[in-house]
């Protein structure tokens, strides 16, 4: 399975000339370098998912561990395999889970959209800024990422709550008479997600916009195109790869987000990550939590991965043609 040096002859066709360097490592060395990280990932990444799959077919029981065994020796004579779909029936029968799933998609979709609307002009502005300050602006975009995520989310609690800074300010300015209720609503979750993931939107957008050939825009303008139209017809289509990459980077973590809906969304905001957490930590129902995880994998992660590999193939094709 690890296939150390088994594939060696094939590599001679590989175009990467430095393959030669590793080829001469010999079967032993090369195999070892592959085996160590391979084994680690098999043991701590792949195998755990198989266990989740297995436990999702078990039944909840009071005890340690809190689930029934799947395979059991009965009377020391024959092997009994007991598969239970109880957790799945429960999952799809209860409106809560389906609602949480669709609500997660909705929240992730709109946060991604808001992040794009805010991030695109920012990325564009940075890409068109003077070279001397461009790196500084980029650093300013990345810097919040290196400070604690939890604390950045926490910062919004003090701002958004009923007697928080935003409401105090708006009341002082005379804009409103009564505090707005923002904390513990979905609005707060939108703000939190856009805030936390904005850098992930800006960076890929910036890197495509920065590489863009400005003479194309000039040509469009010279031919009488209005600036707004030139943007829609030239800049926007050319920056599509950045838009897709940025949206994926925001959408993916947003769907499974737990911390933001938990701290900012209050009890009424349903998101699938929060449901899984509650199922595991509050209800101690491991099979149900596992079933939620499997359903998330099938309905969320697999489509995303398929989309990404489709995207990668499209790009490779475009490169070949270009």
């Amino acid at each position: 399975m690890l296939g150390g040096g088994g594939g060696a002859p094939k590599e001679r066709r590989h175009p990467n000339s430095a393959g030669a360097a590793t080829r001469r490592l010999g079967v032993g060395g090369r195999g070892l370098v592959i085996a160590v990280p391979y084994f680690w990932l098999l043991l701590f990444f792949l195998a755990p998912f198989l266990i989740v799959l297995k436990i999702s077919f078990a039944e909840f029981q009071v005890g340690v561990p809190p689930y029934t065994p799947l395979v059991e020796w009965v009377d020391d004579q024959y092997l009994q395999i007991r598969m239970s779909f109880a957790s799945y029936f429960y999952l799809f029968g209860d409106e809560l889970y389906v609602a949480a799933y669709f609500n997660s998609l909705k929240i992730a979709f709109f946060s991604t959209l808001f992040a794009l609307l805010l991030g695109y002009p920012m990325a564009y502005g940075i890409a068109r800024a003077d070279k001397s300050i461009r790196n500084l602006l980029l650093l300013a975009v990345v810097l919040p990422f290196w400070t604690s995520f939890l604390i950045r989310v926490y910062a919004w609690i003090g701002i958004l709550k009923n007697n928080g800074l935003l409401n105090n300010f708006l009341m002082w300015a005379g804009v409103i008479n009564e505090p707005l209720e923002i904390l513990n609503t979905e609005m707060a979750v939108y703000i939190g997600i856009v805030y936390a993931y904005l850098p992930f939107m800006i960076l890929p957008l910036y890197s495509t916009l920065e590489k863009m050939d400005m003479s194309l825009l000039e040509a469009a303008m010279d031919l009488g195109c209005r600036p707004w139209k030139a943007f829609l017809k030239v800049t926007l289509p050319l920056s599509m790869p950045g838009i897709v990459a940025g949206c994926m980077l925001v959408f993916i973590p947003a769907v499974g987000e737990f911390v933001i809906p938990d701290l900012l969304g209050g009890a009424d905001t349903l998101m699938i990550g929060k449901v899984l957490w509650a199922e595991f930590f509050n209800n101690r129902d491991w099979p149900a939590a596992s079933a939620v995880a499997v359903a998330m994998l099938v309905f969320l992660v697999v489509p995303i991965m398929l989309f990404q590999s489709y995207q990668a193939r499209q790009e490779a094709k475009a490169k070949e043609q270009g």
């Binding site: 998912f49 266990i51 989740v52 595991f280 596992s290 969320l300 991965m305």
Partner: peptide, 22 residues
């Protein structure tokens, strides 16, 4: 296996590795 952890919601990887340890 290299790219998957980056698209996997953390609640899933967390649950999976815990069950693995158990």
């Amino acid at each position: 296996m290299i790219t998957a952890p980056m698209v996997m919601p953390e609640v899933i990887t967390g649950l999976a590795i815990l069950l693995m340890f158990v």
